[in-house]
């Protein structure tokens, strides 16, 4: 059966604000799933809490709308138990980098083979526009009583420092590029992180769609806006770690972090860093449990006719007082 984008849409009413950047992300996820022809029952969207948390209800695959900050914990548990699932976790920047920051860092260390997309708009939208961890110091978005007094988290830099092995940034109004990035993220062997710049039309009156397109910066000669967003793939930037070599690894990580610091006049999108030489968690498990991938937890039979088929004789024998343990 050929899958179309429409097959991945539910009929749940989408109650995001008109003009919300989240629409572009949902569309891109649906397009990516259709393009990869992943059977619907083999993929699952896990989401956090907030506007972005509703994403799982709009996509017609398994949808697990979890708790604020905890989406990665649920998603990793499912993926580890059943590595045959394609799992995409989504959440807001407050969800993933504020309340869930500890899980973000720990997930990087594990490198479970799945994708995590952060809907990054620098505000807590659903609770009416408080400053989120990615809002810059000193900025005062619409509903803040006073300017933000915290420094911002750099999601790309944090992901690289934490051990994510695919780190990219998309822009929700460039759905085509975003779809390609999602496909690349899902196909990546390891934990992929995608930071999606997503203007909140209601509460972020600084980083608006017009701001990203440079409507406030008119080129004097062409009389056209000078967009802030540019694509790394249009430059000679090479994000890939090609060799198991410390010098190259350090250089690739460093260049990605430096690149991620660009803001204001030039904002890069695309793949910042990609390293498939670091073993994913699933591979690390096969070092301990050789048949883990063929017979993971979710596929194991545990009973026959209501009786356990696990044999515990050896364990119990070792506890028998009649015998010594080394017999």
């Amino acid at each position: 059966m050929v899958l179309k984008v429409g097959d991945f849409k539910t009929d749940v009413h989408n109650d995001w604000c008109p003009g919300c950047g989240d629409f572009g992300i949902v569309n891109a996820i649906q397009m990516a799933l259709a393009e990869m022809e992943i059977p619907r029952h083999q993929s699952a969207i896990f989401s956090g809490i907030g506007c972005s948390g509703k994403t799982s209800h709009f996509i017609n695959v398994f949808g697990v709308h979890t708790l604020h900050g905890r989406v990665l914990t649920f998603a990793q548990g499912a993926k580890i138990a059943n590595p045959n699932l394609e799992i995409i976790a989504v959440g807001g920047d407050g969800d993933g980098l504020g309340i869930g920051a500890g899980h973000f860092v720990a997930a990087g260390r594990r490198n479970v083979d799945m994708t995590y997309i952060i809907f990054d708009n620098a505000v807590y939208g659903l609770t009416k526009g408080q400053a989120s961890p990615t809002l810059k110091l000193g900025e005062k978005t619409k509903s803040l009583p006073t300017p933000n007094i915290n420094y911002n988290v750099n999601p790309i830099g944090l992901a690289i420092a934490s051990g994510f092995t695919f780190v990219a940034r998309g822009y929700s109004y460039d759905v085509r590029q975003l779809k390609d990035l999602i496909v690349a993220a899902v196909r990546h062997k390891g934990l992929a992180f995608l930071d999606v710049l997503q203007p909140c039309p209601t509460y972020n009156d600084i980083n608006t769609r017009d701001w990203f397109s440079g409507e406030d910066r008119i080129d004097e000669t062409t009389k056209k806006p000078m967009p802030r967003i540019y694509k790394l793939e249009d430059t000679d930037y090479d994000p890939v770690v090609h060799y198991s070599d410390e010098t190259e690894l350090n250089q690739k990580k460093t260049q990605a972090i430096v690149k991620s610091l660009e803001w204001d006049s030039k904002i890069p999108t695309g793949i910042f860093y990609k390293n498939e030489l670091i073993t994913p968690f699933t591979r690390r498990l096969t070092d301990k449990i050789p048949n883990y991938l063929e017979n993971p937890s979710a596929l194991q039979k545990i009973s026959r006719d209501g009786k356990s088929i696990t044999n515990i004789d050896k364990i119990l024998d070792s506890l028998n007082v009649e015998k010594t343990k080394n017999e």
């Binding site: 905890r70 914990t73 548990g77 059943n82 699932l85 194991q300």
Partner: peptide
């Protein structure tokens, strides 16, 4: 938090967790 979150995620795949 992660411990129970993962156990729930695993349970959703049908695994006794």
């Amino acid at each position: 938090i992660s411990a129970i979150g993962m156990a729930i995620g695993s349970s959703l795949t049908g695994v006794r967790s």
